[in-house]
Amino acid sequence: MDVLLDNLELFREGFVGTLSLTATSALLALVLGLIIAGFRVSPVPPLRLFGTVWVTLLRNTPLTLLFLVAFFVVPQILFPGINSFLLAVVALGMYTSAYIAEALRSGINTVPMGQAEAARSIGMTFTQILRMIVLPQATRAALPPLSSFLIALTKNSAIAGAFNNVDLFNIQKTLSNEGYNILVIFLWITLGYLAITFTISGLFRLLERRMEVAR
């Protein structure tokens, strides 16, 4: 208990760091994932190819490698002096966007064919069909995998902490240097992560229930 109370300020800083990294990169991942999923079903072949390459490359690259590139290569070569929080957000967001795009695409596949056919027959364009007919229905099927990918994103954000981004995982270095019992340190850190992941799964369960009523 002392560990938490004596270092409340540090824990707060770490918790806020994890929370803001998770929230920002989740937002980026959702937006990118939506765009990429749209690309993957679009009528324009090069866009489809781009979507496929994006998903294949990012799903088969270790996240640690992405962070290594983001923290060691990008600042030195491409954009000197860039904010490291921004780099963590981009790396995590891009990595998760590939998974979210796949979740959305398999959600799109669950929408009955007649829906899109009916929309087409009344003259809707591709973007209209996607925006008004297919995606709203696809979201329902995609919610459970989306929730588990966002939880995975929260857990993966710990890797950024190992690369000196200030977050819950990062503060354990300071704490163990001060000589606290590691068991207690990790207990509190884990509870911090559990608080975030349980919130996400709770939110999604709420969302699922509300969407279910709409059906």
Binding site: K155, A158, F169, Q172, S176, I182, L183, F186, F198
Partner: peptide, 20 residues
């Protein structure tokens, strides 16, 4: 499943078993 994998590995590495 809900503990970040990195924390499990790191905790094992810094010797959490010693305190358990």
């Amino acid at each position: 499943r809900s503990i970040p994998l990195l924390i499990t590995i790191f905790a094992l590495w810094v010797g959490i078993l010693d305190s358990l």
